[in-house]
Design a protein around this nucleic acid. Sequence first.
DNA 1: AGTTTCGGTGTACGTGTGTACACCGAGAAC
DNA 2: GTTCTCGGTGTACACACGTACACCGAAACT
Lengths: 213, 213
Amino acid sequence: MTETRVERKERTRRAILDAALELCEGQPLAALSLRQVAKQVGVVPTAFYRHFESIDQLGLELVDESFSALRDLLKAARTFDTPPSSDRALFLAVVDNSVKALVSHVPRAERHFRFIARERLAGSLLVREAVRHQLELIERELATDIARVPGAGRWSADDLQILANLLVNAMLSHAEELALANGRPDVVRRIEDTARRQLHIVLIGALSWDSSR
Amino acid sequence: MTETRVERKERTRRAILDAALELCEGQPLAALSLRQVAKQVGVVPTAFYRHFESIDQLGLELVDESFSALRDLLKAARTFDTPPSSDRALFLAVVDNSVKALVSHVPRAERHFRFIARERLAGSLLVREAVRHQLELIERELATDIARVPGAGRWSADDLQILANLLVNAMLSHAEELALANGRPDVVRRIEDTARRQLHIVLIGALSWDSSR
DNA sequence: AGTTTCGGTGTACGTGTGTACACCGAGAAC
DNA sequence: GTTCTCGGTGTACACACGTACACCGAAACT
């Protein structure tokens, strides 16, 4: 009625995305059928094609959705108005901020992260590549941020990349655990603590690491 | 003929497991149909039930198969006839041995590891739990081995667990990369190098980490 | 006011699915 | 040599699937 046509279209598009995300819980996207999604939305199967040309395309959409907020959040966690002076203090602050960002954001988009965890290695080729691409972006952004800290000269470009990879992998595995924690406060706190300590260990190791060894 | 009945049964059982593993490439186990597997084996669909009561049970079998050799290999990589004297030298030797074990073993069971990577987070509840259980065993075994090195007193039980978790997660992500490398020698070498450096960084960090900080 | 656009409908078809059931035939047990 | 066991067969059914096609009706455009 008072609803314009594009609004209406956007609404059922969202409904399809949400339905897919919900029906996916506990099974991979590939095991999901068009008809299940359509039924959940309350729409006839063929209507699906008005919005997505395949389940795969829907998957790509969900991947983008899942990462868009997170990447900004992580980058923000590494920018300071007045950065700590020593390398060590700076790193510890970055770890704290990043872990806090993760712990606060993941539970707010739990279903999305469970989706990512599932599809990262089990999804179709296209979806897997999309996830991998996003993770590489995060890794690269982290590497360039690390390269900017005053004492970063000690690391070669190779080692920077490797360090960033180690950090992102650790964060990823904790994000996956968080997404499976169902927001239970004690579990979340334990994961948070583990993540912080692990990242500390890594950065302490990195600080006494010399690429020209 | 010259083939006994149990031999024959074991043979088609193996054929079913292999067929499942092969058909699984690029899709999750849950998206696999009984009939596809049966056709691949060259057997009528209902014959499947003579060996497994469900695809899920077949999955559990594959999980056990995948891990049984690896765990022994990793434990062996941490036992020395004459262990190095300093903590640091010991750790570096352990890292080298473990990485070598991984790099030599994973490509020999590539399909199994791709299977594990896929099912670890995307499989059915039962399969996921089986994988998680195996990983926890590896983690625990690593933690007790670390606890035995002379200078391990510096770490609390908590921190030991956390350290082992960090190491296993790093190894896991590299094992997954290896399994996807399709044995391409340059890629394998790069992964091996990355893994070794990352584990070094972690252990250097751990060595200058004090639980009572 | 008349026409076009387009999200959603309803029907219909061929195919693949899990599984129930009766059956077979050769190796094992007696 | 007779009987039993049991891996594998063949048929059959009800169901869910993806998708092609013609159609509808209201918003959007002219």
